[in-house]
Design a protein around this nucleic acid. Structure first.
Lengths: 234, 234
DNA sequence: CCATCATAGATAGTCCCACTATCAGATAGC
DNA sequence: GCTATCTGATAGTGGGACTATCTATGATGG
């Protein structure tokens, strides 16, 4: 197919497709003449993946480039790739950590020890956790750590389910892609489920449905795009 | 205290503090003379909260403005606020949903029914879930829905823990703030825990520690900022 | 009391990111 | 032949989050 059809099938504009090719997210089409290229199903699939990572996962173009590089690198052994794919996805914390970070790191180490996890506390995920816990303490919610073990229980269940799902993949390429998708889109999905569960829990507590109530700007209760401006920039 | 000290205490530059005041995130200081204002502990706390929502939660300034408006609005009843605070946080999906969205919406409705959740499927959280599921189907991973119930189990546990934590708050203001913090920072914390659990699970499967292995760009295994560029833009 | 420093408030500028517009030259397919 | 479409390149746009600069004023310390 030519670029126009690829655009129609994916809903991504032709200039944007070219932009993704320039940025290295999407391989160029097969040139059939100096100014004509053909694209196939792999391009379509890749393009849909890119859009999902941007729209649902909130990843940046640079982040997607690294994720896709991990998917496409067939040299690395599978278990390394799994770690790498997960690592690609950790948000970066540029500014210097505050003073409470040492205590938070210790808490992370203890948690990992306590749960018997075979994971390095100093890795990216552990460090991200430590930074988040330190921030929590900074805003006066150090008490929140009391729920950490419940969170960890839930995370274990989710991780086991993810691994079981990923294990279905036959081809190695599928396996890594499944990991990426499970990690990135799984975050979004779990976040939505968590919010639904919050709504249910507070409904049980307070006896009212709260989700459909319009906010200050009068968000419609019906499905569809609304005026909400919170969230991760696309 | 004056603005300089506020800046020193929070690590936020003076022009940035002024910017937050302009943007309505932070109340202006109490003017003691035409060109002199004093700030107190509430400003410091609020500023730290803003930075946490930006750095850890990845919220935009516009999103934070709405979240803080919900916190500061003392008129709304508590249970509405809980829903609103959660709603503020749902990412927006601007582009038109694909053709599979109808099936995904039905799946969400069934899930809510199945779990007996008192939540509207058409609300923001439900719609976000439907969009994410539709995207999953688009990239050929419709099978992922088989783990949905496991995710929902985990989400229920997390939500119960969150509510129990929030119930500790005595003052109504604290209650809403706890909800916001729990929702936004809790997402980040759970995400990090999930990644640690992934690492552990794949270590158990493949017998290797994968987290500390350097990526393609040679990310350091030690704590501290690194070259990773993936993640939510700040 | 005066020099030096910090401050309020305002406006303009910067940098990055994710596109988007325009163009020239060439080709597809009728 | 004619028109819609394409490639490849370069430049421009709009939004977001700051950041720099400036003026006029007040605070502080010797």
């Amino acid at each position: 197919m030519r670029i126009g059809e690829l655009s129609r099938r994916t809903g991504v504009s032709v200039p944007t497709i070219k932009y993704y090719v320039r940025e290295g997210l999407l391989p160029a089409g097969q040139l059939t003449s100096p100014n004509q290229a053909s694209y196939d199903a792999t391009h379509e699939r890749r393009l849909k993946l890119i859009r999902a990572l941007i729209d649902i996962g909130g990843l940046s173009v640079a982040g997607i480039r690294e994720v896709l590089a991990a998917i496409d690198d067939r040299e690395r052994p599978v278990h390394e790739m799994l770690g790498a794919a997960a690592n690609r996805v950790v948000p970066r914390y540029t500014d210097e950590p505050g003073p409470g970070i040492a205590a938070s790191r210790a808490a992370v180490e203890q948690l990992i020890e306590r749960r018997g996890w075979r994971a390095a506390a100093g890795g990216q995920a552990g460090e991200a956790l430590a930074v988040a816990l330190a921030a929590l303490a900074e805003v006066g919610h150090a008490e929140f750590t009391t729920v950490l073990d419940t969170y960890a229980d839930a995370a274990e269940r989710v991780a086991d389910a993810d691994l079981a799902y990923v294990a279905h993949s036959v081809a190695r390429e599928d396996l890594v892609e499944s990991t990426v998708i499970g990690t990135v889109l799984g975050d979004a999905i779990f976040g939505a489920l968590r919010r639904l569960a919050h709504i249910d829990a507070s409904a049980r507590l307070f006896g009212t449905l709260t989700e459909a109530s319009p906010g200050p700007e009068g968000a419609p209760p019906a499905p569809g795009p609304d005026a909400d401006t919170a969230g991760r920039p696309g």
